[in-house]
């Protein structure tokens, strides 16, 4: 998130309400430690593997990266455990942003603190409008998402209180900038 306001382009993966962290990264993979680079990549390969079996593959078998760049969700995305492995698995898989109607608090916070992905809130329920595989362009700066095929433009909510932390690139750069902790 160190780049202040990027434009994210690519395919969306669409889920609905209450996608919990056990679905984003099931507990059997929590033996992987995110700060070990090889295990960080491995977490990416398991992202969203806990979704019900009728969902399309999020990461192709044998791959470490997803073909999708944005997850579109309904309400309460990331509910459940505080495992930071969840935003990290998504980030490691190549996801740049989640666009959801609302978030569970700890997941949202972990996105911001780690700088792994942008947790963007939509003003309307986009998981009923978009389909997995749709190509979009998400402009973080202007807070708009354009659907390539239809040309439809959807607006996002402002980033709000976490804006300065997001802009700084996470809790550590923010605290260094604010003089709370020393530079390395």
């Amino acid at each position: 998130m160190s780049e202040a306001s990027p434009v994210i382009e690519g395919k969306v993966y669409v889920v609905d309400d209450n996608i919990d962290t056990d679905q984003i990264i099931p507990a059997q993979y929590l033996n992987l430690v995110p700060t070990i680079p090889e295990e960080y990549r491995k977490l990416g390969s398991y992202a969203m593997i806990g979704l019900p079996s009728d969902f399309p593959a999020f990461v192709a078998e044998g791959s470490l990266q997803s073909d999708y760049v944005i997850v579109v969700a309904g309400r309460n995305f990331g509910c459940g455990s505080s495992r930071e492995h969840a935003p990290i698995a998504l980030g490691a898989a190549g996801i740049k942003a989640v666009v959801a109607e609302s978030y569970a608090r700890i997941f949202f916070r972990n996105c911001v603190a780690t700088g792994e992905i942008y947790p963007v809130e939509s003003t309307t329920r986009l998981c009923d409008v978009l389909h997995t595989g749709d190509e979009v362009s998400l402009d973080i700066g202007s807070g708009t998402m354009t659907v390539q095929k239809s040309g439809d433009i959807h607006t996002m909510k402002p980033v709000g209180d976490v804006g300065p932390v997001v802009a700084a690139g996470g809790i550590f750069p923010y605290a260094r900038k604010a003089g709370m902790i020393k530079a390395l």
């Binding site: 995110p34 700060t35 459940g80 455990s81 505080s82 495992r83 930071e84 935003p87 700890i106 916070r109 972990n110 603190a113 780690t114 996470g170 809790i171 550590f172 605290a175 709370m180 902790i181």
Partner: peptide
């Protein structure tokens, strides 16, 4: 670093779950 840290509010404390990055921050500061 566990969402069920909220358990400890039962004894009149403020207790909440956080991720590894925030916990690393608390550990140092």
């Amino acid at each position: 670093t566990d969402s069920h840290t909220c358990t400890h509010g039962a004894l009149g404390a403020f207790a909440t779950g956080i991720g590894n990055t925030d916990a690393g921050f608390v550990m140092g500061t």
